[in-house]
Write a protein that binds this DNA or RNA. Sequence first.
DNA 1: CACGCCTCCTGTGCGC
DNA 2: TGCGCACAGGAGGCGT
Length: 274
Amino acid sequence: MPELPEVESVRRQLAPGLSGRRIAAVWHHTQPRYLDLHLAAGRTVLSVGRRGKFLLCPLDTQLELVLHLGMTGTLRFAPLDAAAAPGPDPLDPHVHARLALDDARELVFRDVRQFGRLAVVRAGDYARIPTLAQLGPEPLSDAFDPGRFARQLAATRAPVKPWLLTQRPVAGVGNIYADEALWLARVHPASRRVGPRRARALHAAIRRVLADAIEREGTTFRDYRMVNGASGRNASHLVAYGQAGRPCPRCRTPLRKVWLGGRGTTFCPACQRR
DNA sequence: CACGCCTCCTGTGCGC
DNA sequence: TGCGCACAGGAGGCGT
């Protein structure tokens, strides 16, 4: 589900309701995907930030709540039944964690496929969250430098799309926006050699595609919802992802779907050359 | 070290 | 209608 634009849209709705709140109690399913989450109990949320696809909430006492929504994770606020002990939702087996707040509400984490992760760590200590520890620069910040990106791209021999998905060259690009950005920059997703001109085009395309998707509050196919339950509006603007067989908007050649690095990949065989 | 493959889950849609 | 299979927006772990 959520790539950077979706997580950013969640963050913007989450922050007003969560910043400044004390977490009164914590319940979660006992799985290794929920790391030291109980340490959040009694702590106050100082702010709600984001790096790539991770939500980062500094807590008082130098702790930090880290949330990753995986493929199907959603967050929502619900009225808190003060009489009920925190526990599984008898009506919804997909609720995996609940954070009771000090304002008679709770934050509910629902995750059908259970690829999401929640953790409480020492602030800034991401040693147990490898992707976060090695996360590349924020794509919409000055830290995402076109020259450096081009040099890193020149140095790797990995196919460009799987390389983007590692989160190391740049934070927050997933399967949808990788296909979209590669199409926009006319870069073949399996290319292992991307020259400086195309690298800069790809850098610009990543920014463009992500900024436009944030503007539309993300892409909803099925599971992705914002905190208020609303869908994003970007799905109807997709040019490559999910459009196999349809004519390329640039050259009318039918878009082709291939399997690359274990992910479905759609591209234009005519205008995305190796 | 870098890369590539498999795995973790559940739900849905499609072909037979 | 029912069954089995492929696939889905992510990333961690392991083998080579």
